[in-house]
Amino acid sequence: MSFLEVFQYTRQDSIMHRLDPRSKLVLSIVCAAVSMMFMEIIPLLMVFICLLPMIAAAKSLGRWAKSMKGLGALLVFVLVFNTLLSPAENPLSYSLSLAIRLVALMTSFSLFFLTVQPDQLSQALIQMRVKFEFAFAMSMAMRYVPTLGQEAYAIMDAQRARGVELDKGNLIKRIRNIIPIIVPLIIVSIRRALSIAESMESRGFGASENRTYMEMLRFGKRDWAVALSSLLILILVIYVRFFVGLPGWMLWGLPF
């Protein structure tokens, strides 16, 4: 699952990281939308080539490349099966563009998730008038993922020590083996939740109607520039794609 790493926030100091999450949301949705609009190899490649410098601006090319390597098997799978099974006229050309599109889509979204800290995301949501409790619940869920994972491993070890054979038997047996893991995990989590709630309550959670925030996100000039130019590009692409039509050389595809 190493290809999922490209969706995980990494602490860095880069131009991309410093942008407001909201402008990055616009940017990454526009990139994704543009790559969804084409089925031809050349325009998709162009989108892809535009995305690369942005990943570089986030100082995350290495991480991105690693994830793409992890994605390799899936890409080969897409290529082979689509070529063999697709009813399209030029199946190889078609599946090649599908593969490029997948990479472009993943890269577009990774632009957002690589550079936005979950806390920032919830702050952005709050400033977009989502209720604080809701946004905070989301960032807390992120906060406790590693803790829960650790707990799950501890329980697995404990059950193994008691003789539960977790990785033996047929599929049904293996699914039934999940029960001695999941039941204690749920109980432990409920207990933990109570203890967390106690601590939050003691620190005045939900006390004041007028909650303040130490740091508000500021939508600066650079953010306006990014958001507006993304939207402009989107409009332009929609216009060309649906009203003008692509120039002939862009429609080029493999002959088979």
Binding site: Q117, P118, D119, S139, M140, M142, R143, I196, S199, M200, R203, G204, F205, G206, A207, S208, R211, T212, Y213, M214
Partner: peptide, 16 residues
């Protein structure tokens, strides 16, 4: 309950 030290310290006063 938050993801870094500064936010953690700020959490209580923010609530109030």
């Amino acid at each position: 309950v938050t993801l870094d030290v500064e936010k953690e310290i700020a959490f209580g006063p923010e609530n109030l």
